[in-house]
Nucleic acid binder design. Structure first.
Lengths: 352, 352
DNA sequence: CTGAAAGCGCTTACAG
DNA sequence: CTGAAAGCGCTTACAG
């Protein structure tokens, strides 16, 4: 209706307007190697006609012909968690630097994740980054991932173990992060350290996901200090603001002497925990020290500011994309598992 | 490598395996109206072959042939703001309910937004939802939007005025929201109410974006109460956590009697403001009452919990998608501008 | 009830 | 230095 162009302009129209063939238009516009051998006048005519008509190459036609869409997909656990947004933004920047588009999808429940992965089998995406952090313990998604790889859609797992030699993983050393954070609390004199953990199927000791790793780091630090973690110190719940508040309430109801510190699954949950403690009339860190996990910006702005185990979101996003490109390029496969270090960021909530 | 299927399966292979033509496979698998006239045995054979081979229709081929991608795009101002995530999640659900995929893109600076919009001219998306909240004052993006519509890609603007009869807008009545919030503060006895506003080019009185509307609602409430807003009460800055903290610091440095309340551009900024006040040793709401804007969940968990003007994120996302579908369907055009009401959520930060 | 054929808009060997 | 032709994998009139 409005606008200079009526409907879509095809390469044939540009060719007609420039007085050349479709081949020439394509070669000029794509800057193919051959294009060095195009006469300057021809090139100029093509460029001019293309600009005047407002030509935009049809994505579907190009993808069909080239057999690649130049689209990548990132599946994240939770779009509502800023840590994943930080990762997604970095991943998108890395993809765009190479001329690719990145679609970010929040996985939601496992069912939805499987469905999203299956849909990727249609060639709509040249590769997929899976950052849902729950594949350690679940077979279903792994099968779909293998299937995808079999269809020529490479996959990289983030935050989880590598499920297959063909599917590299980039992980964060959350075991070490939890260990370091727990030692930080022990070093401040705490003897009873609680752990507010993500609720997942099965016993936490056998959990293969990153929650299991956090737990193992926490226990290792306690045992090294000669402290046997009490069952009453472990509370499990959803990793949300409300979940954090609820877990604190549950912790405070438990029998026995109250823990004086808590290591929390992630920052979002820790924010909820800070709120729960405040509502219960407890002071942080005096009555209970709190350490979160993730390192999102908001932790600087809580009352009190949150001590946290920072996980490298940007680096993970960037490396994930780079690994995907390495897979796409063929050649030497990237190492099957790579581990990124965490960093303890000390603020006031731990009372250091 | 692993997986049951080697590379991609085409419709031709399914046809061969089922002993029928490609036409029949397509008709059966797409459940076209014609498919009622397909023999049960034929249908079963197709379904079985398709499942066995793991057939997945090629998206690019289908899009090229059908001249639509079944992909929609949502451009948001800031992926780092949970309010936009809430909107995006609702919009995605509405799109998926109709079998469409929604790509969510964070616009970033205006340049990037223009580029993202231009890229959509390639037919990669059947429609676009623009929720960047800054088109009131900028011509460039409007031109690109019109161009897109001219190419047959319908657009709907959210949070901004409708720039064109062919581009409907769904807005939130932020003027009324700011007015109501300011009256709430006046009703609590405040006489000096500050406004922490988004920094934008040009004088705020003439700002056509939603920031200008907020300002006008704020001023209207004050004037109705016989109060002339002082220039010293207006501080402008980026709508981020850090920006909120900085604006508060700036406000406190201004000469003259200190305001006793502040209406803040959005919740994220208000969280930063709460932090800034705390750092300055001021109590909320005793020394300064604070009202945010947006109504994101996190506002329940701040210290103190945040009074805020809630904007209907989910409804906006859902209606945006529905309007896009109405445009896609042709028929009667939707109303050019629609206005959604806000809701004042009173918590402790305003001292009510 | 089912199939042969055309064509969506590109890119890319290949020919000259 | 440039163009004609094939073909990517679908869907959809159309014919029988």
């Amino acid at each position: 209706m409005t606008g200079r162009h009526s409907r879509r302009v095809t390469i044939a129209e540009v060719a007609l307007a420039a007085g050349v063939s479709k081949t020439t238009v394509s070669v000029v516009l794509n800057g193919v190697a051959d294009s060095v051998g195009i006469a300057e006048a021809t090139r100029a005519a093509v460029l001019q006609a293309s600009a005047r008509l407002g030509y935009r190459a049809n994505r579907a036609a190009r993808a069909l012909r080239r057999q690649r869409s130049e689209v990548l997909t990132l599946l994240v656990q939770d779009l509502g968690n800023p840590w994943f947004i930080d990762m997604a933004v970095a991943a998108r920047a890395a993809a765009e630097a190479r001329g690719y588009t990145l679609n970010v999808v929040g996985a939601g429940p496992l069912e939805a994740e499987l469905q999203a992965l299956e849909a990727l089998g249609g060639g709509g995406s040249d590769g997929v980054l899976v950052a849902t952090g729950r594949h350690g313990a679940r077979g279903a998604a792994i099968l779909v991932l293998r299937d995808l790889v079999g269809r020529g859609v490479p996959a990289v797992v983030l935050l989880d173990r590598s499920p297959d030699a063909a599917i590299p993983a980039i992980r964060v050393d959350v075991e070490d992060g939890a260990y370091t954070a727990t030692r930080h609390l022990l070093g401040l004199g705490h003897q009873r350290v609680a752990h507010l953990a993500l609720e997942r199927p099965g016993p936490i000791e056998e959990d293969e996901s990153s929650q299991g790793d956090r737990y193992r780091g926490y226990v290792r630090a306690l045992r090294e200090a000669g402290i046997e973690p009490a069952a009453a110190w472990l509370v499990r719940g959803p990793d949300t603001l409300a979940g954090g508040a609820r877990m604190v309430a549950e912790l405070l109801e438990r029998p026995g002497p109250r823990p004086t510190a808590a290591l929390v699954y992630n920052d979002l949950t820790a924010f909820g925990a800070l709120h729960g403690l405040r509502e219960a009339g407890l002071r942080v860190p005096e009555d209970m020290a709190v350490v979160g996990t993730d390192g999102i910006e908001h932790g600087r702005y809580t009352a009190p500011p949150l001590t946290t185990v920072a996980h490298p979101a940007e680096e993970l996003g960037r490396l994930g994309i780079e690994t995907l490109f390495a897979l796409l390029a063929g050649g030497a496969p990237p190492e099957q598992e790579r581990m990124l270090p965490t960093r303890l960021v000390v603020r006031r909530s731990s009372g250091a």
